[in-house]
Design a protein around this nucleic acid. Structure first.
Lengths: 333, 333
DNA sequence: TTGAAAGCGGTACCAC
DNA sequence: GTGGTACCGCTTTCAA
């Protein structure tokens, strides 16, 4: 920039003004532009944000469970689009549910002075979220609630979604309904299980502890658990899976045993191609894009000075009937 | 930092040393650490990289087609893991195949002084890639070649993959094989089509122009195109789809017409759940993780001073036989 | 409107 | 080993 100023025969401040589009005599602006081009000048945003009065870096930190999974990817994209509208960019990282990694990401994001954070919290690190917020970086939690105070959250109504699924299965005659749940440390896994329990209570159905398998992580774990369940003397006639990969694992086992048309299955969260299976997999779907958009908008409000108490947005889920959740209980036949 | 120095009663330089883990008398280090904690001091990496001799920001820029699609997501994660090993973070953005957005991302990434760029190029902006490289930011292109000189690339052997698929179909008796291709501007779409043409030539089969549908983007376009193809007087007995979403669209139409067991289908790039469909979708799979890892490693070599000519890594594809590609041509029955 | 100079939060060099 | 100081590239007073 100094070189550009010298070459254009103007002060360094004038170059800054031109670069930032502030009013400058056209003649000077022209000279600056030309000199900049000739010298191959490239603005340094890191230096500029350092000196700028608002200290904004126009960067958001995004802490995901795993950038590779469809939920995270959709969230990433939704947040990215919202961010782009505000001229902001995304710094993203994956925790793999590891609180140590989460802490590391939070630390380096704040050290890089991101303007705000959107986090899918592992749930084992809430003090760090609070620390970030108190250090002046607004935080919005997504997909899961947090115990950190004054942190906005965007979640879906997990309980209601699962409750409704239980009711549907019950109406179709199912009495032995099994539940597959993710790691207990994950907030949504707890909520969905609670929804399952509530649903059974609502329809007046007993909860068979042997039909509940929690703490499963990944498709293989669900596949094995489903095998176990179906080998029981009183095997379930319907399955509710509390997460994406678990649904895949469950369905895989059903197909191995040729039971996909006999044992009902409802999964939480939609799956690509689920509608092309036979029967299609019925799911409790969440609107990923809406979640991301809402999170971003809460964050931007904070950045614009909104100082009120924590806000908690709860979005609805939507049941997509595709066949696997509509299979009648065998007794009905 | 100045406050910490004052509080600890040491020079500002000493604080810097402590923060950076450089040798300092334990007593002083202790005092600094305590003061830092008490004042809630948080290191500012943006300021530090500004003054640091190497000017490194420990940030990589990742330009994707669409952060939400599985290919991009897998790539993102693979690069993230490699970056993390080097203490680096990722700044990511989506182009949606729009060269204007690509240019914007390239510009703001370099303005933020990323240490390197990993780009899935739209193919309509190669001068910007070159500009970035000449400005001192190493660039690695991924998934697609580029005409920009001195830019390393990582791609898969698209032609060989499609060629082999054509041969398989031919061996199964298919003579009327259709091709569904993505936007012509996309390098891989060109390559895969070339592989199709080469494959037909190899087996001595004629290329029916009416069976080629290129310039399709997204599942719906493929769905419609497949409808058209199957309505032809001499309809194809097999389909090769040149991209993920196109495969989904094609399969959807096949199932609508109940033809998924009569018309063969081979897709490029794997799909989650493809193995659970009946019949399963056979695909020409690429190893996303390996692609991302290789790209990252090429980039890190550049960052460590590797100055040779552009290197082009070509990874193999793998055919996954699942049924849809193994259906015999009707004449055989 | 424009330019000189101070300073954002650090690091690197230098003399002690 | 430690502290003082110049300075990274830029924005922001402030005086001209």
């Amino acid at each position: 920039m100094r070189d550009v100023a010298t070459m254009a025969g103007v002060g360094i401040a004038t170059v800054s003004r031109v670069v930032n589009g502030k009013p400058v005599t056209p003649d000077l602006a022209e000279r600056v532009t030309r000199a900049a081009e000739q010298l191959g000048y490239r603005q340094d945003l890191t230096a500029s944000s350092l000196r700028r009065a608002d200290r904004r870096t126009h960067t958001l930190g995004l802490v995901l469970e795993d950038a590779a999974n469809p939920f995270s990817a959709a969230l990433h994209r939704a947040v990215e689009d919202a961010a782009a509208e505000h001229g902001m960019l995304l710094l993203a990282g994956s925790t793999d549910e590891d609180p140590v990694r989460e802490r590391g990401l939070l630390k380096t994001f704040t050290a890089r002075r991101v303007d705000g954070l959107i986090v899918v919290p592992t749930g084992q690190n809430d003090t760090d979220l609070d620390a970030a917020r108190r250090a002046g970086t607004p935080v919005v939690c997504v997909d899961r609630r947090t115990t950190a105070p004054q942190v906005d959250t965007v979640t879906v109504d997990n309980r209601a979604g699962v409750r409704a699924a239980v009711q549907r299965l019950h109406e179709a005659g199912h009495r032995r309904i099994a539940f597959l749940g993710d790691l207990r440390s994950i907030w949504t896994a707890q909520e969905r299980y609670t929804g399952f329990v509530e649903g059974l209570a609502t329809v007046g159905c007993v909860l068979h502890p042997s039909l509940v398998r929690r703490g499963l992580h990944g498709a293989e774990a669900a596949q094995a658990a489903t095998h176990d369940l179906l080998a029981l003397a009183h095997a379930p006639t319907a399955l509710i899976s509390g997460q994406n990969l678990l649904t895949i694992g469950a369905r895989r086992t059903l197909q191995e045993l040729q039971l996909q048309r006999r044992v009902a299955l409802i999964g939480f969260d939609d799956l690509s191609l689920a509608d092309l299976l036979e029967p299609g997999i019925s799911v409790i779907a969440q609107d990923h894009a809406a979640i991301g958009k809402e999170a971003a908008s809460l964050l931007f409000e904070r950045l614009e000075g909104e100082g009120g108490p924590a806000r908690h947005r709860v979005l609805p889920t939507r049941y997509l009937a595709r066949g696997s959740g509509e299979l009648p209980a065998p007794e009905d036949r």
